[in-house]
Nucleic acid binder design. Sequence first.
RNA 1: GAAGGCGUAGCUCAGCUGGUUAGAGUACCUGCUUGACAUGCAGGGGGUCGGUGGUUCAAGUCCACUCGUCUUCACCA
Length: 875
Amino acid sequence: MPKELAKVYKPSEFEKDVYQMWLDRKYFHAEPDSSKKPFTIVIPPPNVTGQLHMGHALDETLQDILIRYKRMQGYNALWIPGTDHAGIATQIKVEQVLREEEGLSRYDLGREKFLERVWDWKTHYGDRIVNQLKKLGSSCDWDRERFTMDEGCSKAVKEVFVNLYNKGLIYRGNRIINWCPKCVTALSDAEVEYSEDEGFFWHIRYPVKDSENEFVEIATTRPETMLGDSAVAVNPNDARYTHLVGKTLILPLVDREIPVVADDYVDMGFGTGCVKITPCHDPNDFEVGKRHNLEEILVLDDNAKVNENGGKYVGLDRYEAREKIVRDLDAGGYLVKVVPHSHNVGKCYRCGTTVEPIASKQWFVKMKPLAKRAIEAVKTKETEFVPDRFQKIYLNWMENVRDWCISRQLWWGHRIPAYYCGDCSHMEISKTDVDTCPKCGSKNITQEEDVLDTWFSSALWPFSTLGWPEKTKELEYFYPTSVLVTGYDIIFFWVARMMFSGLEHTGHAPFKHVLIHGLVRDSQGRKMSKSLGNGIDPLEIIDKYGADALRFTLATGNAPGNDMRFHTERVEASRNFANKVWNAARFILMYAQSEDHADYKVDMSALEDEDKWIIHGCNRLAREVTENLDKFEIGMALQKLYDFIYDSFCDWYIELVKPRLYEGGDTAQKALSVLVTVFSSVLRMLHPFMPFITEEIWQAMPVEGESVMIAPYPAFDSSISFESECEKMNDIMETITAIRNRRAEMNVPMSKKAKLFIDSHSAHGFRDSEKFYEKLAGASEVVFGKCKEDGAVEIITHAANLYIPFAELVNLDEERARLTKELDKAKSELARVKGKLANEGFVSKAPAALIEAERGKLAKYETLVETITKSLENL
RNA sequence: GAAGGCGUAGCUCAGCUGGUUAGAGUACCUGCUUGACAUGCAGGGGGUCGGUGGUUCAAGUCCACUCGUCUUCACCA
């Protein structure tokens, strides 16, 4: 029993049921099947405790469009959903709640108890985002939902860690890393964001030892780090300072003796040409320190307070220490000047705190060898970026990448599988738990406290979700995946790391294409953010306008890879389009009473011109839409669908066919067969973009197949070619438009029945379309008049939007003025076309079809000028 | 410092490998409560496609320079 369509389009009343039906029928589930080609997408896993925002909505919409399209095309389409444990973000959130509600810190609870709390949190909020994804219509295979910390993913993480370690690609070392004193953890380079801050250059002079009134002047933006200075460096070619190299300086306030060293790193032209070297608090200084064997003095602790190496400044926060040190330097006569200076300061991407470069013992992934293959894979087009400009960004990063700091001083995450023997200090790296030292047999074993960067597990997502390291049939069949859809903001965080991980561990790039989209901004172009409070909740939009309208909005209106501004007005427009589709369906259903789709099979041999025209247009649309989608031009494909449905199908075809439907009988049945058939194609083409409404309508239409989402996607049929009929129809439509314009000009009111005398030049389209008039004339209550001697035609029609006006009295002066204006216009067009055809270059070099078209126009304008001239004379 | 995006109608933006008279949505104006749809219908005004120069028979589209704007990456203490 087919569904009845409600009178008014209210998406909230059926979207949920439609989704449930898909779930019940298991349409989303995919199993390896060698008879079909796979098409695989893995979802960029949202934060498990996160909430759906517009960025997700865009990302999921694009993926769902592709996956539904390919599924309908007969691919074995699999979309793997899942969530990410999001180390820092989640831990911070749970700590915050713990502090607010119970006044406790994670240390109060201890590691084990705290992690229990996080898991509780995860189970409580873990379904929220998944349910939100469902509201969007995402056709993910929920049977295969994964989590970056589930058993399988954890196994993959350990496997990868051990593999890389054994290959020498993971090492533990003391290096300068970015330290966030608020999150109390190390960060990778990618996790630091830079912004310009107003600061100062403090010029300080360091006295030369055993030398009266001899100083070296240095400049620094972070005077507090002088506590950890172990040298001053100058350029070896700097004549100003060569005499100082090898001498000893006295570090003010600290009274430590430090050497002057020569190093190429120093830029002679910058500042004073002398650089204080603080190996433990600056990456460059660290390198200089290594080269010159300098002492490494760490002066800040984990909270960025001065530690025991800071003498009398111990315990002071870094900024308090700065203030006090500057004051003391000034008092001691060491401060030469203070110069305002703006410079880039690194901030933690999670909390915004200024990060501190600190020498610390951390775990690293050696990037150079891994990056090499990741670069090759893109250069050889094993993986392609869409749009391709993002390839450049990727390559640029990959080519300059530094080793990846993967250890985090957090509790929530994959604990590093390194085990230390308390007795023989042996370190064992192992996929399985270690409780006995393999070297000395001691049971005094402790596991590494640190966890891995969240992105370490995300990097494995395309294959860990398919069962790797097991050789599952899913991995065999669905991997490498087809396309990865994500925003340009995580190319470094995620895409790059998946690339080298996939290549290293599976031997394949993890995906064929990377479809990059932009950010969704607010209507003023600002980033949507919690702190600005300018975020628009996709769920509210869905409740009000429907998921289809939101999807339509997100999928159109901006070029691939560009940011888009979100305007609610655009969602309204999208909803109105959905309403249009809905009502077109209701109109067809008013006349299509049979429930048997076989009753609407089109007989190609017995069609009217307008039937052929719409069938031809629909067929061409199928070709263009598939071409666009195959090139990931999603917005373009949808725009074409919109134009066809709104303009060709609703505004023209339905109106043209109304007289036939009113008449009934054979001609009506023929029209209905075309209406149903074309509309069925349209629904299928539109389905990936607007799944809910197309399904709801499908269920009510006499069409073949139990669901639109498993119906075949329309393919181009090269045997359909109605060029001449289309040309004729174009003429007819042009004339009808001209008639409409006449009515408006003459200010003739519309009425149900109307009558018009068309002057001869307006009627030129009609003259070739005798049949069309007969059709109109065949409708009930329609009066049809033949061409009168003066060239006028009298027409009456019922078609609502083809109202043709009644006008018997024409003001001769006005008519003359109008015709003169039209004649001028026609003449100038004629001149333009003539000029073009007289151009030798054009005639010899332009494509033949184009020249042919121009010749056609020439003839057309020549006749037009002729007929208008005649009409004028007849007045 | 390097790379890249953007600049097209009042506003938000499309415009693929150069090719009919540069489009859409929205806003505005005019006229329509017609038997799918006022979440609608018909029509209209509004653009020298940031500027200059070049290539070409042909440039919004390609090239050079330039102005404005935004972003990313790298940064010298």
